[in-house]
Nucleic acid binder design. Structure first.
Length: 486
DNA sequence: ATGTGC
């Protein structure tokens, strides 16, 4: 029997315009809380995302509730768009709660160029970027590094990139965690993972990963936009990628290491994919050190792509990247588990927050933010799709009391890759790109259907629950002019 | 997502 949301045997109670609750029943330790809307929650019954989030709610040590963001859809074990925080004494860590692409994330590079200055050069710039940015499955970096160099990159993240001349001091300041998870220890990363990773630094990868040149189409908050250094018609570069084969290998390795240990801690395998271990288990600590190493690798990866973008912009506009104002707005992770402090029942507690396809959204005053962003809140980067564009928001206080400082990570898929390829045509997608004058370069024909706007939820709808519940505030919207897909 | 899956 299906209820009106299409979810079998599950009662979803609407508690406010944008909040939906699944009360604690059976083995659930906490309720499930969904940030959604009438038009979005209808999609939830179409895949196993809610069942997966209910599984998360049964895990030991979970605090308050298992959270679903408006972009939620089915993932490996945990849903994408899922957030769960665990008590460090009684809680668990789950590789599925982080995802295969460890520290998949987004960064935005600003410029001081406006649309009219770039318009005539877009074709040339696009061709140069497409020819020179390594992208696609199995792509390798322009510069390859040895195992020791790769390990240093994993240990110290952006600091390594800075030493190598790929990063500015300002880049380090504008990256979540300063681009360096302190608990990284590459000794816990397999040789196989390092061998895969050492040729992959500075590559975009495939799937939903992209490099875009966008135009700021709308400013919602003049004050914050000005503080962020954003203005109407400004040219921005968006980069979305992660830890490539290295992160994937770390996830694969630790699922294999951790799965057989679950029995010892009497953790039931609720789903064959669902691996977790108590934080007290030695394998949990090993995973977190390897995960942090892969996270640092991902930050370095996005940084080298930034270096390349600066290089090719300079080659086209004959000005240094500094003169072009190519400073990093921010870099945020959306597949990661981190130790963070929250006030729970009036007491400050250290929790392990899993963000699986969810972006951090810290407000002004948060001790983990530095410099300017401590004063105004962090930029929250929320990519949509290649036609509808992307949003830049600023973190708000309510995210700390309600969602463990988290919001959605993007529009979220609507169609599976397979379904997108089956139902859409290349001609149709190309036509809608042409109609909007968006230059699209993709490594394969297939990816164009897989990544079509129709394959995604409407990002304009996905941001509504976020701003409606004041988890973050709108600052700007940007629309693609050039899209590079792997 | 991934040196791509049935």
């Amino acid at each position: 029997m299906y209820n009106k949301y299409g979810v079998s045997n599950t009662k979803i109670k609407k508690i406010s315009k944008f909040k939906f609750l699944v009360e604690k029943t059976g083995k659930m330790r906490v309720p499930v809380l969904l940030y959604s809307a009438d038009n979005l929650i209808k999609l939830i019954g179409k895949d196993k995302a809610l069942e997966q989030l209910i599984n998360v709610a049964t895990l030991p040590g979970i605090v308050k509730y298992a959270l679903g963001m408006p972009d939620m859809h089915q993932g490996y074990a945990f849903p994408i768009g899922g957030v769960a925080a665990f008590d460090i004494e009684s809680g668990v860590v789950s590789p599925g709660g982080v995802g295969f692409d460890i520290n998949c994330g987004v960064r935005v590079i600003k410029t001081n160029l406006s649309y009219k200055e770039v318009k005539g050069q877009l074709n040339k710039l696009g061709n140069i970027l497409f020819a020179n940015i390594p992208a696609g499955v199995g792509s390798e970096g322009k510069e390859k590094f040895g195992s020791e160099e790769t390990k240093t990159a994993m240990r110290i993240g952006i600091a390594w990139a800075k030493n190598k001349g790929f990063a500015w001091k300002e880049d380090e300041d504008a990256t979540e965690e300063n681009g360096r998870m302190k608990n990284a220890d590459p000794a816990f990363v397999s040789k196989r993972a390092i061998d895969r990773g050492k040729v992959e630094l500075g590559t975009l990868g495939a799937g939903n990963h992209f490099l875009e040149i966008d135009r700021v189409s709308k400013i919602y908050n003049e004050t914050v936009a000005k503080q962020f250094g954003l203005f109407k018609d400004q040219i921005l570069i968006w980069i979305h990628t992660g830890s490539r084969g290295l992160g994937h290998q770390v996830a694969t390795d630790y699922l294999k290491i951790m799965r057989p240990r679950m029995e010892k801690y009497r953790l039931p395998l609720i789903d064959p994919d669902f691996v977790s271990l108590p934080l007290s288990a030695p394998e949990s600590d090993m995973y977190l050190k390897a995960m942090a190493s892969a996270a640092n690798f991902a930050w370095v990866n996005r940084q080298i792509l930034t270096y390349l973008a600066r290089l090719y912009f300079t080659s086209v506009f004959n000005e240094s990247p500094e003169k072009l104002g190519m400073y990093l707005l921010y870099d945020v992770a959306h597949n990661i588990a981190k130790f963070e402090k929250y006030k729970i029942n009036g007491k400050e507690k250290l929790l392990l927050v899993h963000r699986k396809g969810a972006t951090r959204s810290f407000p002004k005053g948060h001790p983990d933010l530095r410099g300017l962003y401590r004063e105004i809140g962090q930029p929250v980067l929320l990519p949509g799709d290649m036609k509808r564009g992307s949003y830049i928001l600023v973190g708000n206080e309510k995210s700390l009391s309600e969602t463990f400082g988290s919001v959605a990570h993007g529009a979220g898929r609507l169609l599976s890759r397979h379904k997108a390829v089956k139902t859409l045509t290349l001609e149709h997608v190309q036509k809608e790109m042409d109609e909007k004058n968006i230059i699209l370069h993709a490594k394969t024909r297939r990816i164009i259907m897989e990544e079509a706007p129709e394959a995604y939820k409407d990002v304009h709808e996905v941001v509504k629950p976020i701003i409606g519940e004041q988890l973050a505030e709108l600052v700007a919207h940007s629309e693609p002019l050039f899209v590079l897909k792997g």
